[in-house]
């Protein structure tokens, strides 16, 4: 079956999986996982250089060549902080892409959707391609799209929780109304979760912890790549209708010896 590629703000990506680069036990493990997942792009965070420990500077040596970078505003709790971080990211990486994250609560890591909307408006005006992490509220999703967001990225469960697609219904509402790609961001725990997101019709899935904290991150990265592809294919294939009774797969005639169904 023919599929179209993921397109964000006019740019075509080779995969529908976006992978984070945090929480890996070693940078080498991260690199192996990225190679196994072969993602559309990888997210990175913007932080102060640790002047007492510059080992983090070798991070770049472990990113596969040519992989598109999606900087995030993780850890920001206001529109102002997120906008400032986006400016730094643009200077640092020479990219207009920004994964906008404005967190509203440290426990749930739920987004402050009002601040996210404010920051989206500002950054879109400044020429950024804004990929906002948001709640699964279809109304906010619509407002973000009206504000010029390049994607809508609803959470499926809290960031890093690995709970899976807890509430598919609002994600479905967002998918039905959105004219930009909807990428399920946060909450995926294992391959079937990624497949479920894609079967719902998501344009892509963004994940980090599910791969980084797997017992074998490289194997899980490959599993996620396959799950995203499988889920996408199943979505395009169109699933069968659910029934409330069994329906035999083998012919019900010509059974030997002949049996009278009424006698059962």
């Amino acid at each position: 079956m023919n599929d179209t590629a993921l397109v964000i703000a006019g740019k075509t990506y080779k995969s529908r999986l976006i992978l984070g680069t945090g929480k890996y036990k070693t940078l080498d493990l991260m690199k192996q996982a990225l190679l196994a997942a072969d993602p559309a792009m990888v997210t990175i965070a913007i932080r102060r250089v640790d002047l007492s420990d510059k080992s983090s500077q070798s991070f770049w040596n472990y990113l596969p060549e040519g992989l598109p970078i999606l900087p995030n505003t993780a850890g920001c709790y206001s529109a102002e902080e997120a906008i400032r971080t986006a400016h730094i990211a643009r200077e640092l990486l020479q990219t207009d892409l920004i994964k906008l994250e404005v967190i509203g609560d440290p426990k749930s890591l739920f987004p402050d959707v009002q601040a996210t909307l404010e920051a989206t408006r500002v950054l879109v005006k400044e020429g950024f391609t804004v990929l906002p992490y948001t709640s699964d509220d279809p109304i906010i999703a619509r407002r973000l799209e009206e504000a010029g967001a390049a994607t809508i990225m609803p959470l499926a469960a809290p960031i890093g929780s690995g709970q899976g697609i807890l509430n598919p219904l609002p994600v479905r509402f967002i998918l039905e109304q959105a004219k930009v790609p909807v990428i399920v961001d946060a909450g995926v725990g294992t391959a079937s979760d990624a497949a479920v997101a894609m079967e719902l019709g998501a344009a892509g899935v963004l994940m980090n912890t599910a791969v980084a904290e797997a017992q074998d991150p490289v194997a899980m990265a490959k599993a996620m790549k396959l799950a995203v592809e499988a889920g996408r294919l199943a979505y395009l294939a169109g699933r069968m209708a659910k029934k409330f009774t069994g329906s035999a797969s083998s012919p019900t005639t010509g059974i030997s010896p002949k049996r009278d169904p009424a006698a059962l």
């Binding site: 984070g20 680069t21 945090g22 990175i44 965070a45 250089v49 770049w60 994940m207």
Partner: peptide
């Protein structure tokens, strides 16, 4: 003065 870099993140 702030000196900022890219590091691993999700």
């Amino acid at each position: 003065v702030e000196v900022i870099q890219a590091i691993g993140g999700g």
